[in-house]
Structure formats: C-alpha cells, structure tokens
Design a protein around this nucleic acid. Structure first.
Length: 310
DNA sequence: TAAGATAAGAGGGACAT
DNA sequence: ATGTCAGTCTTATCTTA
C-alpha cells in the first residue's frame, strides 16, 4: 500500500506545527509512536491501516472492494470468519438435489450457532464490545486497542479471567496496553471511562502484569520532565537544570521508590524558582497529576540532598 | 493567595508466620 | 494464605507570610 511520507503526515496530523528539528524526529519501533528525541514531544501515533483497499481489480466498477474488513485481534474471531455459501448451487452452477439442500441447511445452522456460542467466543464478544467503547471514550488509537485485545486473549488463555468480571479485566488489559506503549492514561482516567473502581482495575492489572510477564517501560523521572514542561512552556535552560537535579539525585540513590512524576515536578519547581521564573506548586501539580503536598515533600528532600538554599 | 504543616486514610510491597 | 510493618501518596483542614 502506498503511504504518504511519514513526516508530512505527522505534522499535519493535529494541525499544529511542531518546532522540533526534524532531524530529531524518530519512530519508536516498539510503540509505533513518532516522537522528538530531543524533547520527548509525541508528534503522532502511527496508525496501522487495516481498511480494505480502495482500488478496483475487476471490470465491475460498482464493487471496488476486493477484500473484506481488515483483520483485528479486537474481534472475537479476529475478523476471519467464514460462512457456508447460502446459494444452493454446486461448483458448476447446477442446483442441488433436495436431500443435499436439506443437509446443507442443517450444516449452516450448526455453523452459525457454533460461532458465537462457544463460551470463549461469547466472552470475547462482550469484552471487545466494551473495549471499543473504552477506546472511543479515552481517545485511543487502534494500535493500543489491538494491544489490549492481545493482552486480554493471553489473560483468558491463562484462565486469569476466571472469577473476575469481564469489564474489569478488559479495562485492566487496556490500561496495561497504555502503560506498555507509554500512552499517558492514568488509572483514574480508565476508571472514570469504564465506571469500574480504581482498586479493581489496579488489582487486575497487577495480576496480568505478573502472570503474563509483561515488560513495562520503566518510567524515568527525567522523561517526565519533558512531558510536564511541554504543557507549561518552560525554557530549555530550566529543563536542563531540572534534569541535572534529578541526575544527581539518582546517582545518590535518593530517588528510589518515589513517584517519578512527583519527583520531576519537584525538580522543575526548584529549577523555575532558581531561575527567576517561578511557577506555583499548584500549577506544577495540575499538569503533573500529583498533589501539592507530594511536590512539597519531594522539594524538601531534594533541597536537603542538593544543599539548595532559596 | 501561595506556601507550609499536620493528620487521617488508602493501597501496595516486603517479610514473617 | 494471612497479618504486620514501614514508607508513600492523597485528601482535608488549618496556619503563616
């Protein structure tokens, strides 16, 4: 399939032009996201095109589709179902005998019933139905949805869904998919969208994470700086300064076990204050999704270990 | 109004039983 | 499997500059 050059596509994607040098734009081969390697700005998610081709390969111009729908893990049968041809003709076009017609009718009925009546399939149908709803509510890409469906299938395979609600598990799978692709959706986000308690999702998520041996990218507080500051228009100089603070903090092993977002927010708070562009704790707390108390606590310990006087 | 202090409560990891 | 413990983060309220 022919595609537009990727750079052109991503810049026009959300209508805004990104100021990063194009030389810095890289594609994360794992997540499919197109990001700026300099500042971490996510420019676009590459969306796999699974729609049918739109070119005609026959003389019949009214039917331009030569394929069915694309395959998808997020369909209970992966979009690859087959049905027995409903026309009662044999291969050479002659009508079938009455007895053969009757046999075929029975076969068709059995075939239809078996498709959605296997309990695993029924489970998938419900789960993926909810998945599509969630995908819309959370504005997620098809790539993520496919990943969530894959994780859910694996979980079902391992019988992890036993004794747990379908909604809870598919939500947890979706959250896991977000985590593994570094798509910023919090437990609170998915909890709100799915009307399932945060606690239940997080329990199921950890179960999935453990049992399936999922490799989650380690959230690095230094990466968080880019994400937070991009929403606050913080200068490059201050960003660098905040990164320095975090680096030395990591070297001293003081940052283990702390929420990386809170840590990054605190470092930025200090960096801003020291460079005469003070931001309020509330401002930082809002964009970083932590509380001012957390920022204060991190600031306090950062100050102690860095000997920063303000 | 922003920043700091304090307390109560939740959730999860480590460890022992 | 279950309980305890220390440490973290959140929510809420009050005080301070």
């Amino acid at each position: 399939m022919l595609r537009e050059p990727i750079v052109q596509k991503l810049i026009s994607n959300n209508g805004e032009f990104h100021s990063c040098n194009e030389n810095n734009i890289i594609t994360d081969s794992q997540t499919g996201e197109v990001i700026c390697s300099n500042c971490g700005h996510v420019l676009s998610e590459r969306v796999e095109d699974s729609d049918p081709e739109w070119r005609s390969f026959s003389d019949d111009k009214t039917n331009r589709r030569r394929t069915g729908d694309g395959t998808s893990l997020a369909k209970h049968d992966q979009g690859l179902s087959t049905i027995i041809n409903p026309i009662n003709k044999d291969a050479s076009g002659r009508p079938l005998s009455a007895s053969m017609k009757k046999t075929l009718k029975q076969l068709r009925m059995l075939d239809m019933r078996s498709k959605s009546h296997a309990s695993v399939d029924r489970n998938f149908i419900r789960a993926f139905g909810e998945l599509h709803v969630l995908k819309d509510k959370l504005a997620l890409s098809n790539t993520i949805m496919e990943k969530a469906a894959y994780i859910y299938r694996k979980a079902a395979e391992k019988k992890l869904t036993r004794g747990r609600t379908i909604s809870g598990m598919i939500t947890a799978a979706l959250y896991a998919a977000c985590r593994s692709t570094e798509t910023p959706r919090t437990l609170n986000d998915v909890s709100q969208a799915s009307n399932i308690k945060r606690k239940e999702i997080s329990k199921s998520y950890r179960l999935i994470y453990r049992e399936l041996d999922l490799k989650m990218p380690v959230v690095n507080s230094i990466q968080c700086i880019a994400r937070i500051s991009s929403r606050l228009e913080i200068t490059e100089k201050i960003k660098r300064y905040a990164m320095e603070i975090l680096k030395s903090s990591q070297e001293h092993q003081r940052s283990a076990g702390k929420d990386p977002t809170g840590l990054a927010a605190a470092a930025l708070y200090l960096a801003c204050a020291e460079n005469g562009e003070a931001r309020s704790q509330q401002e930082l707390a809002d964009v970083a999704n932590v509380t001012t108390v957390t920022i204060r606590n991190r600031v306090k310990s950062l100050k102690l270990e860095q000997n920063i006087e303000l």
